[in-house]
Design a protein around this nucleic acid. Structure first.
Lengths: 208, 208
DNA sequence: CGATTTGAGTACTGAACCGTACCGTACCCA
DNA sequence: TGGGTACGGTACGGTTCAGTACTCAAATCG
């Protein structure tokens, strides 16, 4: 593992930022290494010193981004798991969930990874595992705890977590994916979809 | 509207078939017109006689495919709407729905359109409207009829239809999108996801 | 301060590809 | 049967782009 100098590490960040921009805008094939180097204010020599070729750059980018996905639900999850008002608890969980995922950057990455999943299936796997694969168990654990406390009625916590995600995200996520624009959902619509999703989840999973 | 000779129409079909294959495999930028012509067993001259350029070919392909989406739920929808056993009715609806959508061709097109939605936002719209936009109202109408007959409890039929779709498709569709392979879901898993999705939908929307 | 490394800028090579042009053949219609 | 059109094959011009090479200035280090 070659230790990078501070300067080299900085350049590397610049290159990855530029690569993110280029790949998001034009896809893997459409993005050019010249464009990346120019946007990064760096020479191609420097790019190719850090990354063997275009494919290595792309892989490094996806891995770096998916690593950066910190789990913002760990805290809200722990907190909500001990709440007493189940309606309010699920609602807060849903707000945090939707707020964290229906973001321009997350949705753009989602589209990019999907678009290249046929070319780089292992990267799709990787991104899935480090992204959703990390927040979903947290969500599931939270729901399981609420079930143990007698507030929800759940057979399979992972399925329940997926159902909550599907109820909340199916509509707005599809819109962004197909319409190609983040503003496919107005904030009011997003709030509405979240609300009716929460209601459906509670109707299905709330302890009677 | 220039009338096409039978021969020209045949060639056109061959070209569109080849274009579908090429674009699915390599995306818009990655697919080459030479490849399309070769796969179609046609000269480039013929390709460019029918389609002004690559973009026109792509647009024509997407429109042709989305037009081809006949509504296979109209019949099953009408039939199920008058059923008496609500559990069985929803289950049959779900089977038809999942069976019709979790198909290799549908999922591949879905990925392609999503991948190019940033480049061709209007095509994403078009595909959405002619695809989901046609089957979803059918589903909603069916659910509404079941609600009118006192078997379901539904506020907004379109939302309910979307919730059913989300419960059924969120997991397997995401798998295909990210894993890049259709066999990301075994038939057993697919059946399981469908079953638990139906159960959750019934728990949420069945008339008590 | 001098020597070595780093990197920006740029030019270059080879390949791929879009769109066009040309040629010779097969088919179609009068 | 003969003239014209459609078409397959192929070659070509122009452009883009990945990856390499080279020059020279600037930063780093002994």
């Amino acid at each position: 593992m070659p230790e990078l100098t501070a300067r080299a590490a900085l350049k590397r960040e610049q290159i990855l930022d530029a690569a993110l921009e280029a790949f998001l805008e034009n896809g893997y094939v459409g993005a050019s290494m010249d464009q990346v180097a120019a946007t990064a204010s760096v020479s191609k020599q420097t790019v190719y010193k850090q990354f063997a070729d275009k494919e290595h750059l792309f892989r490094a980018l996806i891995v770096a981004i998916s690593d950066r996905v910190e789990d913002p639900f760990a805290e809200i999850g722990r907190e909500v798991a001990e709440a007493d008002d189940i309606d309010d608890a699920v609602r807060r969980l849903a707000d945090a969930f939707v707020g964290g995922i229906m973001t321009e950057s997350v949705q753009q990455m989602r589209r990019l990874v999907i678009a290249e999943a046929a070319r780089f299936p292992d990267l799709g796997q990787e991104y899935w595992n480090r992204g959703f694969g990390r927040v979903l168990p947290t969500l599931a654990a939270c729901l399981e705890r609420l079930a143990d406390r007698g507030l929800l009625s759940i057979k399979d916590p992972v399925i329940a977590a997926n159902h909550l995600a599907g109820l909340l995200l199916w509509i707005p996520s599809n819109r962004v994916m197909f319409f190609g624009r983040m503003d496919a959902n107005s904030p009011e619509e997003l709030a509405h979809f979240t609300e009716v999703g929460v209601e459906a989840f509670l109707a299905a999973y709330k302890k009677k």
